[in-house]
């Protein structure tokens, strides 16, 4: 489904991602781990089109998405979450959730002033958004400003929001960072449900290895911008190199 071949990314001469090749198949949940500063977030930003690549090629469902802008990539069905939840804090939870819905008639400045063009659609979107919010137990919060949420709720909303565009695949950047363990567990269960019920595919960056490993099929390990290893969760912990960069032994 997602295929990276020899992707590199430089910042002013600093090589943040170097020659990374990886692939994710339809329906998989794949983990991406590595110490801080190893280039994981940068890689995600490159895949989602936020940063242009320096070298390499990225394909998503047979499309070459390397040169595409982030909005085009999103429209192809590749959504993402953010490491620091980047919500629209001056908007309500519901508006945050509806916003990513694609091809809204009401987002055309000619139709927008006339409710009859989009009332129906907006109503359906709101119902769907509410349903998604209910799945993560945030239904009753729909009218609150995003800035009023707790840290954990913000992370949840970040994921819920990207669901709204009906993506086939989601890239998540530390979805449980700074979240209490019980809530983290339920975030992962939510992800597993999405795979089960909607056949979604995931590439997840995560530091909580214990939790992550219960849910993923495979794991890639990055270190200093390069791909260090790639294996199933059980095997990867046996890998000496990985143990060295990760646990220092």
């Amino acid at each position: 489904m997602l295929e990276l071949s020899k992707v590199s990314k430089d910042f002013d001469g600093l090589r943040a991602v170097s020659n990374v090749s990886l692939s994710v198949k339809q329906g998989e949940i794949v983990g991406l781990i590595g110490p801080n500063g190893s280039g994981k977030s940068t890689l995600l930003n490159v895949i989602s089109g936020r940063f242009p690549v320096t070298a390499g090629r990225i394909t998503f469902q047979e499309h070459d998405i390397t040169p595409l802008s982030p909005d085009r990539i999103f429209h192809l069905g590749l959504g993402r979450g953010f490491q620091d939840p980047s919500l629209f804090y001056q908007m309500t939870v519901l508006d945050n959730t509806i916003l990513p819905a694609k091809a809204q008639k009401g987002e055309n400045p000619l139709f927008a002033p006339f409710k009859r063009f989009w009332r129906q659609e907006e109503h359906q979107l709101a119902e769907r958004a509410y349903e998604i919010l209910t799945q993560i137990d945030m239904g009753r919060l729909f009218g609150q400003l995003a800035s009023e949420l707790s840290g954990g709720q913000m992370k949840l909303l970040d994921i819920a929001r990207s669901q709204m565009g009906n993506p086939q695949m989601l890239l998540l950047d530390e979805p449980t960072a700074g979240v209490a363990p019980p809530l983290a567990q339920s975030i992962f269960e939510h992800i597993a449900n999405l795979r089960q019920n909607e056949n979604m595919t995931f590439l997840i960056i995560e530091h909580r290895l214990d939790m992550l490993f219960n849910f993923v099929d495979r794991v890639y390990v990055m270190h200093m911008g390069e791909l260090l290893a790639h294996d199933t969760p059980d095997e990867i912990l046996e890998n000496a190199e990985v143990r060295e960069v990760y646990f220092g032994d």
Binding site: S48, G49, R50, S69, P70, D71, F74, H75, G79, R80, F82, S86, F88, L99, P100, K102, R161, S162, G165
Partner: peptide, 9 residues
């Protein structure tokens, strides 16, 4: 920036 990654032109 975020609006763009959520599919907005």
């Amino acid at each position: 920036d975020i609006a763009r990654t959520l599919g907005k032109d």
